[in-house]
Design a protein around this nucleic acid. Structure first.
Lengths: 148, 148
DNA sequence: CGGCATCCGAGTAGATACTG
DNA sequence: CAGTATCTACTCGGATGCCG
């Protein structure tokens, strides 16, 4: 195991924080779970990239984002931008010039989220190779049973 | 603005980290984005809750998870567990007893991820009310233009 | 030209019933 | 108990076309 970053002590600390967090949540009705609801947008695979790029480039226009977030379609980008604006992560500014111009930039709220998000994505970029390796390994362990 | 947690200094620091992270990514082909690919599973709204609960309870069985992750279906839970195992976050142990028993627990890899994830979800639980408030506010600002 | 809305197909989620 | 199978419904995503 080359992953010796997690000590038992760490696990206990994490569990304590989790207990506290879940404690707060369980007060409310289970139907509305803030984590599930808010993260559904905020941790969406497209949202993440949009937010990260906006954390990097202070201001971006629609097509600039589209170019950076490889593979996103007009529709999805448009939707995500609208939702991310609605949730307060970014601000949309329209300049009614002749060729219309729209700028997107993070709000302070968005910046504070991106900061946290970045810690997670750094972890991911560091260990993504291991994840992919895990996937490969997992597929192989099926064995020759499944002939057909 | 009650959200004065983000200083200009912080933003610059964040941008630097982002530059470094994107710098590593841009080397590869754009088609495969580790963030998008790995996070698509790891930051999925169901995955998050499964992982967090497994961070709290050292070991959980299928139906226990199902009970805790409110609203998840057999199918989706089964799928997610399989994928999360395949990516190395958790370990599935089958006990071939009379009523079959299956235990799920985080791997060390999973624990290290949950640790990072928790920082993000703590932020989310702290500010989820504001996000919801933002959403409400946003909906109202439509104005009476859209009559039909 | 840049941004958005519409359409339609494909994949995914959810409910239920069933099996080892 | 721990899933799988199946079916439906729906959301999502991609291409296209429209409008400012």
């Amino acid at each position: 195991m080359e992953m010796e970053t997690v000590t038992e002590n760490q696990k206990v600390k994490t569990a304590k924080k989790l207990k506290k967090m879940f404690g707060h949540m369980d007060r409310r009705q289970m139907e509305y779970c803030p984590i599930r609801d808010v993260m559904a947008l905020a941790s969406d695979k497209w949202s993440i990239l949009i937010l990260l790029y906006l954390g990097y480039y202070p201001v971006l226009r629609f097509n600039a984002i589209k170019k950076k977030v490889y593979g996103i379609s007009n529709k999805v980008l448009s939707e995500r931008l609208k939702m991310l604006e609605s949730d307060g992560y970014l601000k949309r500014t329209l300049f009614p010039e002749v060729p219309i111009r729209v700028e997107y930039r993070l709000t302070d709220f968005g910046h504070s989220y991106v900061e946290k998000l970045l810690d997670l994505t750094e972890w991911v970029t560091t260990y993504s190779d291991q994840v992919v390796a895990n996937r490969m390994e997992y597929g192989k362990s099926e064995g020759p049973c499944s002939g057909s």
